[in-house]
Design a protein around this nucleic acid. Structure first.
Lengths: 211, 211
DNA sequence: TCAAAAACATACTCATTAGTCTGTTTTCAG
DNA sequence: CTGAAAACAGACTAATGAGTATGTTTTTGA
């Protein structure tokens, strides 16, 4: 789904993600990104046709990161909750590892339709949504399986999955890697968030005990 | 904490919140907001000194909305979890009721420092954070109390409260009132999100049974 | 009833910034 | 080696949008 990225292109994406994160996707200018690279606009516009395309590329890569990380640990032979726990752990780890990219996604999450949306840009945005939806589907399907199993509380699926993803993505809002990112704290975040996420899903009432 | 707002000023805030929501806080121009009001810039700049001040006013009002709603139902004589459940219910209801305002908050949550930040604007933003922190504190304190009680799982407080707030705010990301906001669906959202939030906090291991 | 202040409208200025165009350097296949 | 294409740099254009300055209307208090 994602074409190969040259080393230079990847460097540009990293810089773009960083600037979008610190300044906001809309406020960050192409010149800001170029300056952060020690280059000029010429370099960026040689690789990307527009700012919108660059933004979409960053968002697409973000979804791709978590997608790969989660898909790698999926094992549908396990019970849904067990599987979801591994998936969640992997997702949170990846978010913490590639934080700037995921910050950008959150910034453009709501239905904020871009003003000057050409046909091409619109298509790119639709592609981004598709990638995000695909990733949510990984969790969506497992939650549905868990509800069928009886191990997960029977709630509105949309509401439940949205809440789950928000828990897993919550570090995006407050995690500051620049201020001391001790491996210990990272482990705490992964453990506690995964624990909270699983607890929020787990069925309370009958609790089928297979022991 | 919040000065009285004239009818006209309130109308401007509503329009601003709406435009910030649909177009994004950065992309929405003062002219856009004025046009949505059927007026011109003059009206807005008569009441607000700058776009940043207008944005801050919207954010401050958002925090004020949920603050009032939650504070009204706090009853610290109850057990922490019971109290938190009522608070959460009230919070979610308020978010759904004044959605545009809360969308704006989420858009500017991350550490995106504005570029042209004058001293005044900076002070306003700091005021906004203070209001948001105050509201989070309401939940923070109750969670701490619950942990002390033993009814809430002993996790990192920052992580736990952040996760909790994200669950409660999650409709901001996907709820579309324009597309059929049946009272029934609203009730479902409030019930399921509150249920998930409480489940994510509840202590799993010893479970002190006071019955 | 009548100033004066509040509440707007309208026409500007000026800075920022996305995108373009042309030139220069680097890479690399043959 | 060489020439052509890729990978940039740097100057320029054009449009958008925040903020201002000066009107005009409406409200209001005495």
């Amino acid at each position: 789904m994602l074409e190969k990225i040259s080393a230079s292109k990847s460097e540009i994406l990293d810089a773009a993600a960083h600037c979008f994160m610190t300044l906001g996707a809309e406020a960050a200018s192409i010149d800001d990104i170029a300056h952060h690279l020690g280059s000029t606009k010429g370099r960026i516009y040689h690789h990307f046709p527009s700012k919108g395309a660059l933004l979409s590329a960053v968002q697409l890569r973000a979804a791709d990161f978590t997608n790969r990380a989660v898909e790698a640990v999926i094992d549908s032979s396990r019970p849904a909750l067990e599987n979801l726990e591994e998936m969640s752990r992997s997702h949170v780890r990846e978010v913490l590892a590639s934080l700037p990219y995921h910050r950008v996604i959150l910034q453009t999450y709501p239905g904020t339709r871009v003003k000057a949306a050409t046909e091409v840009e619109h298509a790119l945005q639709s592609e981004v949504r598709k990638g995000q939806r695909a990733h949510e589907m990984l969790f969506h399907d497992e939650v549905a399986r868990g509800i069928a199993e009886g191990s997960i509380e029977n709630r509105n699926l949309t509401v439940a999955v949205a809440g789950l993803m928000l828990i897993l993505n919550s570090p995006v809002f407050w995690f500051r890697p620049e201020r001391g990112a001790s491996q210990d704290f990272i482990d705490t975040i992964v453990r506690d968030l995964t624990s909270m996420a699983m607890a929020s899903l787990r069925s309370t009432a009958p609790a089928p005990q297979p022991e």
